[in-house]
Design a protein around this nucleic acid. Structure first.
Lengths: 165, 165
DNA sequence: ACCACTTATATAAGTGGTGATATAATTTTC
DNA sequence: GAAAATTATATCACCACTTATATAAGTGGT
């Protein structure tokens, strides 16, 4: 069953994220996978602005704002206005948030071990492959590669890779 | 910048899908990446029911229904009621849909070449890695791997792979 | 003191799916 | 031949983001 790279990637996400989400449920935690990048940077640095969280977590600012709204509803963070700059909001873990860190760390450890076990089953580690692919696309974006292919004739003998989007 | 596997996968999707989407735009086509699996099976088999498309394209039936609604709005398909079974809808490419196949094929060829070029820049081909990862997760789901890790102690010396969700 | 600009955050709409559930039509069972 | 089970499709709510845009609050120039 041939599919696009994108379809495969999404499939893989569902397989992983679904399992991780279920693991939090089994551990009895009111917690979503999307909290983790934010949780991590808040645990490492004490108090941060929205924008700084976005930078450190490697996601966009709107994603952080939205995630924080959910985390606040789950009582994981407390948010206060900065008094030096009223545009900024200062975010820190709530007591409840801190109290969850131990059990979360255990979940993350197990997830990491699961990822290791997956990598061990593969000829080449997935996590490394993804890192390298992202880096390669950073050096030369996919759009450039598509455009470069514009004038070449399809060569029926040379495609080990029939997926497209 | 350490991130979860899921975050990396999503990042990669954006990098790829965005470029592909833009390529259709540059080619002047009213066309979305999500159409491709459906387009392909309709081009190969003449006329299909919704469920059969889902099977052949490897996506769920609701995804097909939703995609067909968009494709119909873009005049790519024509949909008629089956007279043997009034529950079924028979989908086929419209004249306009057929007329686009040539240019689409060219886009797909270029995308394939771009994917080949990406793979060539990597120590191990991405597409192959994804295929193998999905297969490995099929054999042993990620949830099983997480549960199996439950009782082992984190071993600080052995983690080449610090990502989690 | 005011206008233009930049910065910080929020909101809206969209992307491409998924699973759960609803509705309608058909087939099976008694 | 009517009730029950099955099948085909549609609809809804969700997921974890993204981009584009809006609003609010600062800063700099005149």
């Amino acid at each position: 069953m041939k599919q696009g790279l994108g379809t495969q990637l999404r499939h893989l996400i569902d397989l992983l994220d679904g399992a991780v989400d279920a693991a939090y449920g089994e551990a009895g935690l009111d917690y979503r996978p999307r909290y983790t990048p934010v949780m991590r940077v808040l645990a490492a640095h004490g108090s941060l602005t929205v924008g700084r969280i976005a930078e450190l977590a490697g996601i966009t600012q709107p994603a952080v704002t939205q995630t924080l709204a959910l985390m606040k509803a789950d009582k994981l963070v407390s948010i206060t206005a900065s008094d030096s700059d009223a545009r900024q909001r200062l975010v820190r873990l709530s007591d409840h948030g801190v109290s969850l860190l131990g059990r979360l760390q255990e979940c993350w450890d197990r997830t990491r071990q699961a990822a290791d076990s997956l990598d061990a089953d593969l000829p080449y580690p997935l996590s490394q492959c993804l890192r390298e692919a992202i880096e390669a696309l950073h050096k030369r974006p996919f759009g450039d590669r598509i455009r470069a292919a514009r004038h070449s004739r399809p060569d029926a003998t040379s495609s080990p890779n029939p997926e497209s989007e």
